Amino acid sequence: MCVIDSSPIIETRRIVLRAPAMDDVQSLVALGGDSDIARMTTRMPWPYGRTDAEDFVGRCQAQDRRRDNTFAIELEDEGVIGVLGLFTPPSGHLEIGYWVGKPFWGRGLATEACQGALDWAKREWRKKLVVAGHFADNPASGQVLIKAGFLYTGVVEMKPSVARGEPAATRMMVWLA
């Protein structure tokens, strides 16, 4: 299922996680262009336009896939509905982050994507620990992570939010294989 030199493809019951491609730019802009999406992420600017999405896809294509993988979340019959990333900070453990477009909220798709990515990281990368965080004003993201098997650490960190233009209190969580 995984070849180190190429982009992995992860299939779950309803979705496919695969590398973002330039063909996804329109969907990424349509969904990620919502300020409610961008402001709940650390790295997305707002407004989020075509150039931002093209730059994002280019960075994803240049990743060292032994350390980092970013996936387009693709729903059968719908196309791309969001993004999920596994990345290794310079100092620290593997971290997961994601966003799903508003029309797809409340259907368990973010949880399913996280669970698929975690299973893959455990199996292919032999990871036993993954960290995540959600902005304190986004409790729904905390529920997604809890359902995916994460636990709160009790730590709150100030993390950047490009769209907000300032750091936001972030509730840190951990997943143990």
Rank of each mutant, 00 (worst) to 15 (best):
S91K: 14
S91M: 14
S91E: 15
S91N: 13
G92E: 06
G92C: 05
H93K: 14
H93R: 15
L94Q: 12
L94K: 09
L94H: 09
E95W: 13
I96E: 03
G97P: 01
G97N: 02
G97V: 01
G97Y: 09
G97M: 09
Y98F: 15
Y98N: 06
Y98P: 02
W99R: 00
W99T: 04
V100S: 04
G101W: 05
G101H: 04
K102I: 12
P103L: 08
P103F: 06
P103C: 09
P103S: 05
P103M: 03
F104K: 06
W105C: 11
W105P: 04
G106M: 11
G106E: 12
G106D: 09
G108N: 05
G108L: 03
G108Y: 10
G108T: 00
G108D: 06
L109M: 01
L109R: 00
A110S: 08
A110V: 08
A110Q: 08
A110T: 03
T111G: 09
E112T: 11
E112Q: 07
A113D: 11
A113W: 04
A113M: 07
A113L: 10
C114N: 07
C114W: 04
Q115S: 13
Q115M: 14
Q115K: 14
Q115G: 07
G116I: 08
G116C: 10
G116M: 03
A117L: 05
A117T: 08
L118A: 03
L118Y: 00
L118V: 07
L118G: 00
D119Q: 14
D119C: 10
D119N: 12
D119E: 14
W120P: 05
W120F: 15
W120T: 02
A121Y: 04
A121T: 10
K122C: 13
K122E: 13
K122S: 14
K122R: 15
K122T: 13
